[in-house]
């Protein structure tokens, strides 16, 4: 076979494999197969199971294909609307925790990201490591640390006791304490996207703005903010979605008196053994997450960001 013929056969083959199953089994499609299988088993499967269970009748832990019901939906949605039961409070708690956490992490991260990306040259690695190392520790351990600090007769008590303060309102089991926990735990998820987007702004761009007479405020509003917006949006998405699902923080720092959707789901599955009720709330959380994710992402032009590298 001549070289030209071989080349032609190869071109024919690559043209033919563009569609159908053959295309999936040839590179680059084949490279995605392990990932697809994993997602199918670990994500899509359980999701389907959750949706199926949410339409089952009360207190069953085995799906019964003959009995379907929307009773749990009536209970949850009805409760949210009428204000009866815990569901309204749970929803408010969850959204309040997520929005406040997102805002707080942003306010704390933005100046730090600016400093780390643009100003601090020395010890920068040390700072970044200090921010990353907490991620190596389990969330449970970190949150329990907080609990030990704040709980009655805990570390905080002994400290304020030294100053003669005996009676003060407990800081545990409040919504603000949960927010403190989520803010602390999810801070890196805001900091790093913002840091990276700051890092991608060229020095010359900032110098050019200064050169063209921009005050520090103009520099922030018209150059830094718009150019770091993708990082802010991605960071907000991470923190908001993670806070929506925050369970450990709510359970430990909320201590059973403040519930979020996530901790209530766990309560339904665990303590009350009501799988359909838990599943319904899980579906609700999923819908809230997806909708808010879409809303957040729509504020930026993802395609423009993807093309910026060109």
């Amino acid at each position: 076979m001549s070289t030209l013929q071989r080349l032609r056969t190869r071109l024919d083959r690559s043209g033919a494999s563009e569609s159908g199953l053959a295309g999936l089994l040839a590179p680059p499609g084949i490279l995605l197969i392990p990932m697809s299988l994993l997602l199918l088993v670990m994500f899509v499967g359980p999701m389907v199971a959750i949706v199926v269970f949410s339409f089952q009748t009360g207190n069953s832990i085995v799906a019964n294909p003959l009995e379907w019901s929307i009773a749990t939906y009536e209970e949850v949605i009805g409760g949210m609307i009428s204000g009866e039961g815990v569901y309204g409070d749970v929803l408010v708690n969850t959204v309040a925790v997520s929005i406040t956490t997102t805002a707080l992490t942003l306010v704390v991260s933005y100046p730090a990201a600016y400093a780390l990306a643009r100003r601090i040259k020395r010890y920068k690695l040390v700072f970044l490591m200090l921010l990353i190392i907490p991620l190596f520790t389990s969330v449970n351990i970190r949150v329990f640390g907080w609990a030990l600090f704040l709980v009655q007769n805990g570390v905080l008590d002994s400290i304020v006791g030294l100053f003669g303060v005996e009676e003060y309102a407990s800081l545990m089991y409040r919504r603000s304490t949960i927010i403190l926990g989520t803010t602390y735990v999810y801070l890196p998820f805001m900091l790093f996207p913002v840091y990276l987007s700051m890092l991608s702004i060229e020095d010359a761009t900032i110098e050019a703005a200064q050169d063209l007479g921009a005050s520090n405020y103009t520099l922030f509003r018209r150059i830094l903010l718009p150019l770091s917006k993708p990082g802010i949006v991605i960071g907000s998405l991470f923190v908001f979605v993670l806070s929506l699902g925050a369970n450990v923080e709510a359970e430990i720092l909320g201590g059973g008196s403040i519930f979020t959707i996530a901790s209530n789901i766990q309560y339904s599955f665990g303590y009350s053994q009501n799988w359909p009720l838990g599943s319904t709330q899980a579906v609700g959380l999923l819908i809230i997450t997806v909708v808010s994710g879409i809303v957040i992402l729509r504020t930026i032009d993802l395609r423009a960001i993807a093309e910026r590298g060109d």
Binding site: E202, A204, T205, E207, A208, A209, L212, R222, I223
Partner: peptide, 11 residues
């Protein structure tokens, strides 16, 4: 006013 080598237009 400095014209930068990379031009530094605001993207």
């Amino acid at each position: 006013s400095l014209v930068f080598q990379s031009w530094a237009l605001f993207p």
